[in-house]
């Protein structure tokens, strides 16, 4: 898994590439928790280059969303399509997160 962080008008965009499994999920979890840990943070996670996400990855996303609620931060996911979207649907996660179609829409939704 590779992570790439960018700033776009006060919104932090984290692009996740490759696979989120039990080996890589803790790395993502640490990064995400730190990002949404600051009060009022605005974070977009871009999954357009993601190939695979397992239950370990979904757990990390749930924990990050919970942390964002506690700190009144905003967490938006984008680029959830194809196989990855099917997995979100399979696990019943599509309605649990704010999911934007594109990165631009994600930034607008977070901002």
């Amino acid at each position: 898994m590779d992570l790439n962080e960018e700033q776009a008008g006060g919104v932090t965009v984290l692009q996740v590439m490759g696979r989120i499994d039990s080996t890589t999920a803790p790395v993502l979890g640490e990064r995400l928790t730190a990002m949404v840990g600051a009060a009022g943070a605005r974070v977009v996670v871009d999954f357009s280059q993601l190939d695979y996400i397992s239950s370990a990855g979904f757990r990390i996303l749930l924990l990050a969303a919970k942390r964002a609620d506690q700190t009144t931060s905003k967490l938006v996911l984008c680029g959830v399509s194809g196989k990855v979207r099917q997995l979100f649907d399979l696990g019943g996660f599509l309605d649990l997160f704010t999911i934007a179609h594109t990165r631009e829409e994600g930034i607008a939704a977070a901002g």
Partner: peptide
């Protein structure tokens, strides 16, 4: 799911 790895395994 969030509480423990057991929940994560059940989700899997």
């Amino acid at each position: 799911i969030m509480e423990s790895e057991d929940g994560q395994c059940k989700l899997a």
